[in-house]
């Protein structure tokens, strides 16, 4: 399994080994995750974590196959109608000047997460050990405040648990030294996962050596999901009769 991950991720043997080591350390720390759920969320927001997991999505390598969406659904048994990870299609232009681009979406695991600052129970918090934003479904009351606060519409109510739910970077896999399911399954290797606080990690080197963007930078949330060559066109950008159509492939037919 590990070897396969290494191959898929294109890691050199040496760096993969060191990554697995600190994944293991992070795994031990996960055990205490439940216990800190009710601690002061303000600390969790402001404290800068040593490791900050992030993702880089090279949209040039994305073919819109939705394998990541399916892998995510299967990994978490996400209820029908809800999506932790999805791929939007952005179509624009008039023939022959047309384009269709793909924008894979997931929780941005922001460094300034608005969902955390509005959570009244402390169920949602940013893990100090690896910067992953998680929701404790045993504490969450389902008030939907975080659903309102998230500028990326990454959250939904899981009607099985009654809790707010979203992408957690596959915490259960990552803590065992395995990359998230969407990264593992990506046929075009468009997704790179790693620690963006480590300047020598693959993701950090790629972020440094490519023009990258984040979504809705103006919201000030400091996302940790980066994109190469993302098409930021939105239906509201269509001026002068230009054709722009965004298909979200989720129950929420429109971005908001």
């Amino acid at each position: 399994m590990d070897a396969e991950v290494k191959m898929k991720n294109g890691d050199e043997g040496k760096s993969a080994l060191s990554r697995r080591d600190f994944f293991g350390a992070a795994g031990a720390a996960t055990l205490t995750a439940g216990a800190v759920a009710l601690s002061n969320t303000a600390d969790a927001v402001t404290a800068k974590s040593k490791i900050q997991y992030g993702m880089l999505i090279d949209t040039r390598r994305c073919s819109g196959c939705q394998a990541c969406s399916v892998a995510c659904k299967a990994e978490f048994d996400v209820p029908l109608g809800a999506t932790r990870s999805w791929v939007e299609y952005v179509e624009k232009g008039t023939y022959p000047d047309v384009s269709r681009n793909f924008l894979p979406r997931l929780c941005n695991h922001c460094s300034e997460p608005l969902c955390v600052s509005v959570c009244p129970t402390g169920a949602t918090y940013k893990r100090k050990e690896d910067g992953i934003v998680v929701t404790d479904s045993d504490v969450c009351i389902g008030c939907k405040y975080c659903l309102q606060a998230c500028p990326y519409d990454a959250r939904f109510i899981n009607h099985k648990t009654g809790s707010a739910d979203k992408c957690d970077f596959c915490l259960h896999r990552v803590s065992q030294g395995v990359v998230p399911a969407c990264v593992n399954t990506c046929e075009g290797r468009a997704r790179i996962f790693g620690d963006i606080n480590d300047p020598n990690s693959e993701i950090s080197r790629l972020i440094a050596s490519n023009p990258v963007t984040v979504l809705r930078k103006g919201q000030g949330t400091k996302p940790n999901v980066y994109y190469i060559a993302a098409d930021h066109a939105d239906e509201t950008d269509a001026t002068n009769g230009q054709y722009i159509n965004v298909t979200t492939h989720r129950e929420q037919a429109e971005r908001r």
């Binding site: 969450c140 009351i141 389902g142 008030c143 939907k144 009607h159 099985k160 648990t161 009654g162 809790s163």
Partner: peptide, 9 residues
């Protein structure tokens, strides 16, 4: 209207 209440908690 809480999600937890609707789910039976």
């Amino acid at each position: 209207e809480l999600g937890s209440f609707e789910a039976g908690h």
